[in-house]
Structure formats: C-alpha cells, structure tokens
Amino acid sequence: MADLCDTCWYNVYDEEDGQSYCDLQLDQDEYGKLLERQRQGKPCKYYRRDVGEYGIVRKQN
C-alpha cells in the first residue's frame, strides 16, 4: 500500500515534518471506509497516478 501512495496524485510531502501524507479531502464516512479497506488489505479506490508537472500539458496539446 505504501508503494502506491508514493506514486499517488494526492501524496504531499511536508518539508517541516519530513514526511508524506495523503491530501485527499474525505468526509468522516468516506475516511472510515478507506481505513476499513486498508485493514482488509484492499487497494485504495481513490488512487490516481501522478503524471507530473508536464503530464497535464501533454494532454492539452
């Protein structure tokens, strides 16, 4: 699961803490379901591959 988070669009690195965290905005129910899926060993259904800075520009051209 941690490997997927490293390449996820929502993964944000905090320079002050030196750690990464998920910046996905979820309500309490959605977050509970996400934690339950993690506990069951299922992949994150919100995973979105990070295409980088130039990935968005390539789609526009």
Rank of each mutant, 00 (worst) to 15 (best):
C5I: 00
D14Y: 01
D50K: 08
V51H: 02
L26D: 06
Y31E: 14
G52P: 02
K59W: 15
Y31H: 08
A2V: 04
Y13L: 07
R48Y: 09
T7F: 11
C22I: 01
G55W: 03
A2K: 07
C8D: 02
S20D: 07
Q40Y: 03
G32Y: 07
L4Y: 12
D6Y: 03
L4S: 10
Y31A: 15
Y46W: 15
C8P: 00
E16F: 07
E30C: 06
Y46H: 15
Y54N: 09
G52M: 02
N61E: 11
Y13I: 04
N61P: 02
K59Y: 10
C44I: 00
G18P: 02
Y46I: 03
T7N: 14
K33R: 12
K33S: 14
L26K: 12
K42H: 12
D17G: 01
E53P: 04
C44A: 06
L34C: 15
S20N: 13
R48S: 14
L34E: 05
D6N: 04
C5V: 01
C22P: 00
G55N: 08
R48L: 14
D3H: 08
Q40M: 10
K42N: 13
V12M: 07
C44S: 03
Q19N: 09
S20V: 02
K33E: 13
V51E: 09
L26A: 12
Y46P: 01
Y47P: 00
